[in-house]
Every structure is written in structure tokens, then in C-alpha cells.
Nucleic acid binder design. Structure first.
Length: 568
RNA sequence: GCGGCGUUAGCUCAGUGGAUUAGAGCAUUUGUCUUCGGAACAAAGGGUCGGGGGUUCGAAUCCCUCACGCCGCACCA
């Protein structure tokens, strides 16, 4: 347990003693007072008063008067219907800095997920199409969820699930044979070319009705694993997969296991057969469905009339496959919110089948362009490569101006790191349930609420540390300015932010915390001279503080998939 | 038609288990800096929290209703 949590426990113990057994005080009842001057934590008395049929203001006054100071709490004052607890700054400050020093890269880690195992499915791009900014949101969000669970003590499994089969693949392969043939294709261009072919094929089909039958034939041949088309499928599929591996690595997205739709298709069909025998599924209008009318979820289609599989066919099989391989307590599906009904149906069906694990659909909204939704069929998409290259280019130019003496290699490394921090932060700073309107001009601005601003803060602290020989060491009573206290408090808050995010998956709150903290440091830096060679004790204390800021920011960046830098 | 989500400053977004004059970033205007990195800091202007009604001492936040937008509702994924 970290200092602030300990302090809250002290407040709980005191309150319990004062109230007695008639009312249970818990951690999540505490609020933050609107103004720090009013106290560090507040206990609202509304609920307690309601139970006793009394005035909350009166109760607050009584409670405050009957509670005495403890190790971390020095004053207890009633303000209206709230009992406000003021921390003992000296005790809390040194304990917080000690926490960070002791835990280091693990500061903020908790154990709320101890002995529980969660599997997160995310990163589900389709092969034969390009990876675009919408896929980035999915992959980066899923990875952050995985990270926050890990940090809270859960055992985790991250699962990518690749759409490597189905109608879109058939169309792409048909298009490849028709438009590409044996023409030369260099390695760097091949996935981009696949996307072009897909778009071209879509346009062609719209104008040539007869092409549809040809594509259907390709799909049949493919499902029958006919030699020639299977060879082309395997080859082109591999291009996409290699590209995904490259992109994931750049984004710090690292699934533990990769599943493919092609490997669960057959198992899914068998499962449907069994469901028919068991009476869970039935035939309807030639297709196979699960009747979920009783739960107001309509009919859930699990096999097409022609006996070919659907997304649902494969998802049913995949749920069991994950279970067999990892037996998690919970499966989380990071999939866009258009799929909300689908997942309700899928989960209801699995429940009917006796599936035990807790299932959660973590929905997120789309990434749109200023002119509207992206469509890979129409080809108006911003791909990862477009965004990445534009960003790296812009950052490299800016970095070169700042560091004319740097080598090409150094410039590339820094531009790469800053670009990814900007991309990941952009995707994570906003509530998942809201549309991100992607604007390239805005994406290329690195001021304010952005990843580079956070990285810049860390680089600055590193730079200050590197310029003095004085070692960081906190001495009680030396950090008393308003900004210094604010910084220590935000560091003290961090473990609670992490714990809460582990329960709510509110990754944006971590991004917000990181920005607020970086902002506080910038204000402090402009107000106070940190290194004063003639004041060794004071400098030591300030260095201890800013190093704790750096460490905590670093830890937050790790969760957000942002690598940090000593110079940029 | 039914259901889900959304509507807060010019733009992009926080805040929604009811606490003071509703916050941030960008943009605009004006400043700061011979000193630890200006991807910085300070300040100003800018808001009937979509409309209406209700509950409450008190509502952006809870309830009802209307409007607008996006999405979903059987053989796509």
C-alpha cells in the first residue's frame, strides 16, 4: 500500500471508531475537496445522516470534533456536510518520496487483480487491407488495457485476432489475379498495392455485375483449399502479417498470442452442428440461428444458408479455444461499438451453451476524417504508414534544428520515438466512447495536451540532473512552496489513478494525470531555480522531487505505450 | 419503427455516485526570458453546459419530454 492509501485507511479507522458499527465506511466514499486548502480528503456525511434521519452538517461537526490526529493526518475539520482531513505534510511528503524511490519503475503497481487471469482480445486487422488510423486506436487501446491490468496485478493474455479469410480476401485475390497478374512487386509496396487492388476490385464490381460470380467462385475454391488460389492466398496473407508485426512493434503493441479466422472456421462449423443437436440452435429460412427473442436480442445468425461460416461461427469456436488454451477468469473484447448488439448476442449464446467465463465487450468509437467516416472499400483512408511517415518527417526536421550536431541515426531514433508517443497519446487521451476526428494538421501539432509535451518534460528533468553533481536527497521541511506541494500530491495520487483505471479501464484518466503533472512541473520550473550549487541541501531536496516526478511520469508513459527519452 | 451512443468556449475535448465564480488544449490578442532545454511560462477575451419541464436548499450531473447527429436491428466483418 502506498502513502495516500495508508492515510485514507487511517481516516477510515478513525471514522469507524467515532461512528460505531451502525455504518460501514469504505475507501470509495471519500471525495477530493474542491480546493486543496480545505483539506486533502473529504468524507461526505449525506448517506450517514439519511440513515439516522439527522442533519449532515451536524453530524460532520460532531465527527470532526471527536477524531484526533494520526501518523499521516494532522487536522480534521468539518466544512458543511463534509469531514475534511488535512494531511501531515512532513510525514506524507517524505513517505511519498520514499515510496517512489523504493518502488522505482514499479511505483503505482497494485495487487487488486491478484490471482485473477484476464484475456484481452484486440488488434483484429484484416489481411489484404491496409492498417489505418482506426486500427491504431483499437490496437493501442487494447494494449493499454492489457498494461493497466498487468500493473494492477492481473495475470494477462493479449490476443490478436487476424481476419485472414472471408469475402474480402476472395475479392482481393480475384483482383490480384485480374489486375496484378505476374507483374513485378517490390517488398516495400506490396501491402499498399493489395489495398489498391481491393479498392480497384470494389469499383470494378460495382460496374460489372458478372464479376461477382467470379469472386464467389474464388471464395469457394479458397474454402476448398484449391492449390493455385491457396498458394496465392498464403503468399499474400503473409505479406500482410509481416506488415502487422512491423507496425505492432513500432506502436509498442505486443500480443502474446495470434489467432487467425482461418484456423477457427472449421471448429466453428462443428460447434454449430452440435448446437443443432443440443437444441440450442435451429434452422430458420435455411440458415442456422439461435433464438434470443426471450432476451430481447432477436435472432442470432450463426451459419449461412449455403453452409458457409460467419463471423459468429468463428467467434464461438474462438471463445472455447481461448478457454482451453489459457482458462482465464474473464475475456475482454476490444471491438468497435457498432458491434454492441452482436456481442450481446454472442455472450447470451455462449451463456446458453454453459460457458462460464465472464465476458466483456469493451467498445470504442470510430476514427473519422473531417469529411466523414473512412472506408477501406472506397479507399479514403489514412493509413498507419501515411501518418507515421508524415509525423516522423516533421519531427525529424524539428529535431535537426534543435540539435544540428546529431547524427542521422540519432535523429531517426528520436523522431521515431516522439512520433509514436504523439500517435499513442492522441488515441488514448480521449474517452473511447467518443469519435476521434482525425486531422493531420492537428496531429502534427506537438504543443499542449500531447505525447511530445510529456516526453519533453521528462527530457528536461534528465537534462537538469545531468548538469549537476549534487545527488538527490530529501530533507524534511525543505519543500514547502505551493508548487512543490502540488507536485508531491500529484505523485501521491498516481497509485489511486492506476487502481481506479484498472477497474474502469479509463485509460484517458492516466493521460490526463500525466499531462496535469507535466504541466505542474513546467510551472514549477519557471518559478524556481532547481540547481543552486551553493545550496546543496535545498538542491538535493528539489532534485529528489523532480526525479520522483520523472519516475512517476515514466511509469505512466509505459502504460500508455510511450517510450521516453533523455534528450529530444 | 425499436434500441444504443452523443450534443459543454470559434475548434478538439475533460467534468455526469448533486459542494463555491463550469475546466483544459488548440486558435486569437498581449506579455515573460543576459540564469537549469521556448516542443516552455504568464495574462486576456470567449460558454443560455442542445430546447423545455420536473425532483432538490442547490442540477452540466438525477427523472420526463422534444429536437438534431452518428451507429445498430438475418446470411458483411
Amino acid at each position: 500500500m502506498y502513502t495516500k492509501q495508508k492515510a485514507i485507511q487511517e481516516a477510515i479507522t478513525s471514522l469507524k471508531k467515532a461512528i460505531g458499527k451502525k455504518f460501514l465506511v469504505t475507501v470509495d466514499m471519500f471525495d477530493a475537496p474542491p480546493d486543496r486548502k480545505m483539506g486533502d480528503i473529504a468524507f461526505p456525511c449525506f448517506e450517514l445522516a439519511k440513515g439516522e434521519g439527522r442533519n449532515p452538517v451536524e453530524i460532520a461537526t460532531e465527527l470532526a470534533a471527536s477524531i484526533g490526529p494520526t501518523t499521516f493526518i494532522e487536522k480534521i475539520i468539518a466544512v458543511g456536510p463534509y469531514v475534511n482531513f488535512h494531511f501531515n505534510d512532513e510525514a506524507v511528503f517524505s513517505a511519498v518520496l520514499e515510496d517512489v524511490k523504493r518502488a522505482g519503475t514499479k511505483y503505482g503497481f497494485g495487487e487488486s487483480g491478484k490471482d485473477r487471469k484476464v484475456l484481452v482480445e484486440y488488434a483484429q486487422p484484416n489481411t489484404h487491407k491496409e492498417f489505418h488510423v482506426g486500427h491504431i486506436r483499437n490496437a493501442v487501446l487494447g494494449q493499454a488495457v492489457l498494461n493497466i491490468l498487468k500493473v494492477n496485478g492481473y495475470e494477462t493474455v493479449g490476443a490478436a485476432y487476424i481476419g485472414d479469410i472471408g469475402a474480402h480476401v476472395a475479392k482481393a485475390l480475384w483482383g490480384f489475379q485480374k489486375f496484378q497478374g505476374d507483374a513485378e512487386l517490390v517488398k516495400e509496396d506490396r501491402t499498399k498495392r493489395l489495398q489498391e487492388i481491393y479498392t480497384e476490385a470494389t469499383t470494378y464490381v460495382a460496374e460489372h455485375e458478372e464479376a461477382k460470380a467470379e469472386i464467389d467462385a474464388v471464395q469457394r475454391d479458397l474454402e476448398a483449399r484449391e492449390d493455385e488460389i491457396t498458394k496465392l492466398w498464403k503468399e499474400t496473407r503473409q505479406w500482410s502479417i509481416q506488415e502487422f508485426e512491423r507496425i505492432f512493434e513500432l506502436l509498442h503493441v505486443s500480443p502474446d498470442v495470434w489467432y487467425y479466422e482461418s484456423e477457427v472456421e472449421e471448429g466453428g462449423k462443428e460447434l454449430v452442428k452440435k448446437m443443432l443437436t443440443d437444441g440450442i440452435a435451429k434452422k430458420s429460412e435455411g440458415a442456422t440461428i439461435v433464438d434470443l427473442e426471450a432476451e430481447n436480442l432477436g435472432a442470432f445468425l450463426i451459419l449461412k444458408t449455403d453452409g458457409s461460416s460467419l463471423y459468429a461461427t468463428k467467434d464461438l469456436a474462438l471463445a472455447y479455444k481461448k478457454d482451453k488454451q489459457f482458462s482465464p477468469d474473464r475475456q475482454i473484447f476490444v471491438v468497435d461499438n457498432r458491434q454492441s448488439l452482436y456481442f450481446k448476442q454472442l455472450f447470451a449464446t455462449l451463456k446458453l451453451m454453459g460457458f462460464q467465463e465472464k465476458l466483456v465487450h469493451l467498445a470504442y468509437d470510430m476514427v473519422n476524417l473531417p469529411e466523414g467516416a473512412m472506408s477501406s472499400r472506397a479507399g479514403n483512408i489514412v493509413t498507419f504508414n501515411d501518418l507515421h511517415q508524415t509525423m516522423v518527417g516533421a519531427i525529424k526536421r524539428e529535431t535537426a534544428e534543435r540539435h544540428p550536431d546529431w547524427s542521422e541515426k540519432q535523429l531517426n531514433k528520436v523522431a521515431e520515438t516522439v512520433a509514436i508517443s504523439a500517435i499513442n497519446f492522441m488515441m488514448l487521451r480521449q474517452d473511447p466512447n467518443t469519435i476521434i476526428t482525425f486531422d493531420m494538421a492537428e496531429a502534427l501539432s506537438f504543443d499542449g495536451f500531447t505525447g511530445p509535451y510529456i516526453l519533453y518534460t521528462i527530457a528536461r528533468i534528465e537534462s537538469i540532473k545531468a548538469k549537476t553533481k549534487i545527488k538527490p536527497k530529501y530533507t524534511k521541511g525543505l519543500l514547502t512552496s505551493e508548487k512543490e506541494e502540488a507536485l508531491i500530491r500529484t505523485i501521491a495520487d498516481y497509485p489511486l489513478v492506476i487502481q481506479k483505471a484498472g477497474q474502469t479501464f479509463n485509460i484517458a484518466s492516466i493521460a490526463q494525470w500525466a499531462f496535469d503533472t507535466a504541466k505542474m512541473f513546467a510551472e514549477y520550473y519557471h518559478e524556481v531555480r532547481i540547481v543552486e550549487e551553493e545550496d546543496k541541501v535545498g538542491t538535493s531536496a528539489r532534485l529528489a522531487l523532480i526525479d520522483a516526478v520523472r519516475q512517476t511520469l515514466d511509469n505512466a508513459c509505459e502504460i500508455l505505450g510511450m517510450e521516453t527519452l533523455k534528450e529530444m
